[in-house]
Every structure is written in C-alpha cells, then in structure tokens.
Design a protein around this nucleic acid. Structure first.
Lengths: 191, 191
DNA sequence: CGGAATCTTGAAAGTGTTCAAATCAAGTGG
DNA sequence: CCACTTGATTTGAACACTTTCAAGATTCCG
C-alpha cells in the first residue's frame, strides 16, 4: 500500500527525502471504495483526496440535455479528487464514481493543506502533479480536433487495458459518441 | 497601459499592496504585436508572457490530418503565453497568433521566474491565475458534452462581441465544425 | 439456470461535411 | 470615386457519417 504511494512520489520527485516520506504516513488512511459508489458529487466541495492503489474511476458531468458525459478516467497510481476544491473550497464541477471496488489511501483536505504549508517536498510534489494535471486538461480539450476513430485509438494507446476494465458505453461517452457508434467503429478497425 | 495591468491584478487580488505593484514596473515592456504574427509557435519554449492591454489572439494546434484547430481565444485583459513552459521550460503544444494589432505588456521568462521567487504577492497572484486557467481548461473539455449549437451559444454568452472581432471560420474551428455549418446554424438561431 | 446488463446489428432519420457556385465586404490602385 | 481583386460568408445539392429506435445476441452474475 504505502510502498506503492512512496514509489509513485519518488517517480515524480526522484530526490524526495526518505525521511519526509515517512512523515506522510500518519496523514493517510487506507480505505476501500466500493463499485458504483460516488467519491465526489457535482456541487459538493471535495474534502478528501485519494491515491488509487488499485482501482478505476470515472469523472463525469451532466449536459443541458441531462445526459452524462465522461471527462476522464483514473486508474491505479492516479490521484482521485479535486485539488482545486481542496485548496480553495470551490464546489466541484464533476462527479467521481468508482467503476470497480477500489483500494485507496485517503487524506483529508485539512491534512492536505497542512502538508502543503509545512512540507516543502510535499508542496513541490503537488506542484508537479498539478502542472501535469493542467497539461492533461489541455490535451483532453485538443483531442476533439481529431475524429472519433482517432480519439479512440489515442485512448487505447494511453490505456491499453481500458477495454477490459471499463464498459464500452462509458468509453463511448468519453469519446462523445453513442455506444452503437463505438461498436461499429471497433468492428471497422479490426477488419 | 500600466494602470490597466494594475487594475487587472487588483481585481484578482484585492489586497495586493500598492507598493508591490510599482515594483513590477521595471520588468514589463510595452510592445505592439502586429496582426497575423505568431507570438508563440508549437514546439518552441515560451520565453515571454504578455498582458493584452488591447487585442485579440487565437491559440491553435494542428491535428493528424494537418487541419488547424483553435483551442482558445484571448482578448483584452488576458495573459497570453504558456505559463507551464515559462516555468518548466517545456515546449509549447500550441501556437499563438494575433488576430488584430495588439498592444501588450511583456515580461521575460527570466524576470517572471525571478518575481515568482521574490515577490510573495506576485506569486499569489500567479497562483490564482493558474487555478483559473486550469478551471478554464476543464470547462473547455466538458463543452464537448454539448451540441455545436449550444457550444456556440455558450461562446457568445462568454464573449458577446466575438463575432465582431473574430472571423467566422475561426469561431467554427473553435467549435469543431465547418464554417458552412456555423453559417447555417446561425441562420437557424435567428429565425 | 434464469435475469439483467452489455454489446451488436439493421434500417430509417437526422445532422454535418464536401464541393462548387453565388453573394457580400473591404481594400487597392487607377 | 469606381472598377477590380481578394477574402469571407452564404447557399445549394449530393454525400457520408452518426444517431435513434428496435430487436437480437452475448456475457455476467446471483
């Protein structure tokens, strides 16, 4: 559990001091998030962040027609939650739901902000994560420059096992097409 | 010129100390960016940020078909450039072009980073701007949950005068449709 | 073994694209 | 100031792609 979190941190910040890693321990709590439960709901303020040791989540919003639209997925070694809301107390624009039973390490917004203020290495780590998240958001929005078929290929190349873990209609929603269209698109790609 | 920049900063950070504002002066330079010139090119590292006193810019990428796709617009009182690249030296994923003759206040990446390190108020200001930019990127990608017509209406509500300043084929590109489709869509909306 | 959920397939309808031509607008040079 | 050029927008018709709705096949799970 914690070893995986530490590995994750060291991958992002290779010179994160070993002793500072151990200081993090008391702030995290191991939890199971059961399949289909909501980790965060639109409009709520995110008061917990979770490091996904094992699991799979979807972020989604609802459009003006009342249809769900998936904005992103999160898998093992991803952080789940809304950093923005944790820091500034702004209500979330997305909901987050577990697609499997997920094993996570959670940290409260209070402890998170405490560490941000009092641990230089942690603050640097979060800053890097944040920069990465920003880049991902920019990439996500430019994906729509591509055709649905290309978007699907890009998604597959990023997450080769996504078809095993995520129902196809969710992938379709992420791509912005109907499940039927995705089914046909897949059929075409194979032949 | 500078007054406008100061107003902009005070709007974001109401208690930005007056004396710290004046400290910023020597780092900024007033410039004109002529219509159609590139402020930043894909792949280059952004070494200058610009505060748009007056003007209008488009950010764009090129998809795998070689077609341009506009990711966002920037107008008066916007910051133009890639903060990410300025801080981390990463190459830009977008190009930025002036759509009018633009009057801007520029600051070099070096000075920018210097201020970030040495001026607490400036760092706080940038942090807020950054959070805002992140949110905008998230919103931008969820816009594709909506129909082209709704996306157009949303854009109009955000920038009521955009049709006066930006050619329609650029707006179409931003919406992810052809200029012809936008033309028809507008015709329909009016009646 | 059911029953529910998911995925596939078909046909019709809808929507956006393409390509070509016409119209409109703005600026240039005689 | 007008004719001309160039760029931008509109319109039309054929076409391509995606959606919708309905039905059938498949998979998963209690």
């Amino acid at each position: 559990m914690y070893k995986q979190l530490f590995e994750h941190i060291k991958k992002t910040c290779p010179n994160y001091p070993e002793e500072d890693l151990n200081l993090l321990l008391p702030y995290f709590e191991s939890k199971i998030i059961t399949k289909k439960s909501l980790f965060l709901k639109v409009g709520d303020v995110c008061n917990t962040a979770a490091f996904a040791v094992k699991g799979c989540f979807r972020y989604f919003t609802t459009n003006s027609e009342g249809e769900e639209f998936i904005t992103r997925f999160a898998f093992n070694d991803y952080w789940v939650g809304e950093i923005q809301g944790m820091i500034h107390g702004t209500p979330s624009m997305v909901s987050i739901e577990a697609l499997e039973d997920c094993s996570v390490l959670t940290i409260s917004a209070t402890d998170y902000n405490y560490l941000l203020q009092n641990s230089r290495p942690f603050a640097d780590f979060i800053e890097k994560k944040f920069a990465k998240a920003f880049q991902s958001a920019e990439i996500r929005s430019s994906e729509f420059a591509e055709s649905a078929e290309n978007r699907y290929q890009i998604l597959l190349s990023k997450f080769p096992d996504i078809t095993q873990r995520v129902p196809q209609y969710y992938i379709a929603s992420y791509l912005g097409i109907t499940p039927e269209s995705l089914s046909r698109l897949r059929k075409k790609s194979i032949s």
